[in-house]
Computed example of a mutant assay.
Amino acid sequence: MNRVLLVDDDVELCEMLGEYLSAEGFDVLLRHDAESGVPAALGGDVDAVVLDIMMPGQSGLEALREIRQQSLMPVLMLTAKGDDVDRIVGLELGADDYLPKPCNPRELVARLRAVLRRSVPTKLGEELSIGPATLRPAERLAEWAGEALPLTSTEFNLLEVLMRNVGHVVSKDELSERALGHPLARYDRSVDVHISNLRRKLGNLDDGRSPIQTVRGLGYQYVEHR
């Protein structure tokens, strides 16, 4: 049973979502402010965090920044509907996914299951190595030139999809389906933001380029090393 931490200052909504998640087989821990939510997230007994962005006192974005300083656990944000700025900032800080509030509980369950499924090591898939980049799917480990890369589960999956299609363009729609676990919505920039984060963490090729290239109007391509 996966244990999920739900952090939201709306007590009634938090309890309602908690009851729904419990009925769907999750072990749920509730907190109503970021000050108590961060220690609970980092206590070592939580598999994923659902984090509201707009909270009094310490904001959800500040809490996310603290969590990412110590952990790569899956984090799903709840954002105000239409608040693209907070949504993009949250993704830039390392959130794996987001849902606008008010959210459909069934959609929350689906997104949680997807992000948790993506974070579990799989015995399928041998080590994948292209130039200085190495992925070990069975251990969920990534390296660049022998140095460990601190990738979130979403970043790891994006890199794996791109590397398995080296030299070929992968559309944003396909990346969203295969790496984020859901269709790409209209005006959704989450794939672009995750790719931007991934580029910052990867090294450059000998010619100074990023190994992940944008193919305008089509998607992204992991280029072959020469």
Results as ranks from 00 to 15, higher is better:
residue 57 G to M: 08
residue 58 Q to L: 15
residue 59 S to C: 07
residue 60 G to S: 05
residue 60 G to I: 04
residue 60 G to V: 04
residue 61 L to R: 05
residue 61 L to P: 06
residue 61 L to M: 06
residue 62 E to G: 09
residue 63 A to I: 09
residue 63 A to V: 08
residue 65 R to G: 09
residue 67 I to G: 06
residue 70 Q to S: 13
residue 71 S to E: 03
residue 73 M to R: 10
residue 74 P to T: 04
residue 74 P to H: 09
residue 75 V to K: 09
residue 76 L to F: 01
residue 78 L to G: 02
residue 80 A to C: 00
residue 81 K to C: 03
residue 82 G to Y: 01
residue 83 D to F: 03
residue 85 V to P: 08
residue 85 V to S: 11
residue 87 R to F: 01
residue 88 I to K: 12
residue 89 V to H: 12
residue 90 G to P: 00
residue 90 G to D: 00
residue 91 L to W: 06
residue 93 L to V: 08
residue 94 G to S: 06
residue 95 A to W: 06
residue 96 D to G: 09
residue 97 D to H: 13
residue 98 Y to L: 12
residue 104 N to S: 12
residue 110 A to C: 12
residue 111 R to T: 10
residue 112 L to F: 14
residue 112 L to T: 12
residue 113 R to P: 12
residue 115 V to M: 12
residue 117 R to I: 01
residue 117 R to K: 14
residue 118 R to G: 15
residue 118 R to L: 14
residue 120 V to C: 09
residue 121 P to N: 10
residue 122 T to L: 10
residue 124 L to K: 14
residue 124 L to G: 14
residue 124 L to F: 15
residue 124 L to T: 14
residue 126 E to M: 10
residue 126 E to H: 10
residue 131 G to Q: 08
residue 132 P to Q: 03
residue 134 T to W: 05
residue 135 L to P: 03
residue 139 E to M: 11
residue 139 E to D: 14
residue 141 L to G: 01
residue 142 A to C: 02
residue 148 A to F: 01
residue 149 L to Q: 02
residue 149 L to M: 02
residue 152 T to L: 03
residue 153 S to G: 08
residue 153 S to R: 05
residue 153 S to F: 08
residue 154 T to L: 09
residue 154 T to F: 13
residue 155 E to N: 01
residue 165 N to L: 06
residue 167 G to R: 04
residue 168 H to G: 02
residue 168 H to C: 02
residue 173 D to S: 12
residue 174 E to R: 13
residue 175 L to Y: 11
residue 176 S to D: 05
residue 177 E to I: 12
residue 177 E to H: 14
residue 178 R to G: 08
residue 179 A to M: 10
residue 181 G to M: 05
residue 182 H to K: 15
residue 183 P to L: 01
residue 186 R to N: 08
residue 188 D to M: 01
residue 189 R to H: 12
residue 190 S to C: 12
residue 192 D to C: 12
residue 194 H to Y: 10
residue 194 H to L: 11
residue 194 H to S: 08
residue 196 S to N: 13
